[in-house]
Amino acid sequence: MSSEAHAHAEETLALREQFDTAEQQKDASTLGMWIFLITEIMFFGGMFAAYTIYRSAYPTVFAVASSSLNVTIGAINTCVLLLSSFTMVMAVRAGQMGKRNMIIIFLILTLIFGCIFLGVKAYEWNEKYVEHHMPGQAAFHLEGTPLQGPAKIFFSLYFAMTGLHALHMVVGVGILLTLIVQTRAKKFSAEYFTPIDISGLYWHFVDVIWIFLFPLLYLIDRHLPK
C-alpha cells in the first residue's frame, strides 16, 4: 500500500501505523481477543478444577449446599444474561450496517440487562450473608449436614466463582459505557467497528462462563427425591 493510500486509510478507518491494511488490523485485533479469551478460560479453569475435585470428594454436602441456593432467581438471572447477549449481537449487527443510533440503543439495552444481573446477584449474596452461609462468618452454619467444613468449601467456591464472574461483568459494563461514548463521538462506521465486534466476543464469553456456573452451583442433584 502506498503511503498516500495509507494516510487516506488512516483517516477513515483508524488504521494504525504498524499495519498495512485495515483487514490485517481487524484480523490482528480479533485474534488478540480470542487469545485473551483463552487466557480467561485457563483463569476460570483453575477454579473449575478445584470445584471438580471437591465435588467428587464431598458429593452429598455439595448437593445439600446447592439446594440452599434459590433456583428461581438464578434461572431468571440466567435469562437476563442471555437476553443481554442477544442485544449485544444486535449491537454488532447494527455496527456492521453502520447504524449508529441502533448501536447505541442496543448497547444501552445490553448495559441495562448487565446491571440487572449484577443487582440480582448482589441481592443473592446478601441473602447468603443473612442466612450465615458466608464462609468468613463466625456464625456460619448450613442446615442438613454435619460436615460444616466441606459446606464452607462449597460456599467459598460459590463466592469466589460468582464473585470473579461478577467482576468480569463490571469490566464488561465499563467497556459498554466506553463503546457508547465512542459511538456517540462517531468513531465507528460500517467499515470500522472492530471494538464493538471484539467487545461482543468478551461479553458472550462472560455469559458462557455463567452458563457453566449456573448448573454447577445451583442444580446439583435437584432431580433426586428429597
Binding site: G149, P150, S156
Partner: peptide, 11 residues
Amino acid sequence: IGIFDPALGGD
C-alpha cells in the same frame, strides 16, 4: 474462605 484449608477438609 477455605479452598486449601485442611481444617475444613480442603486439600
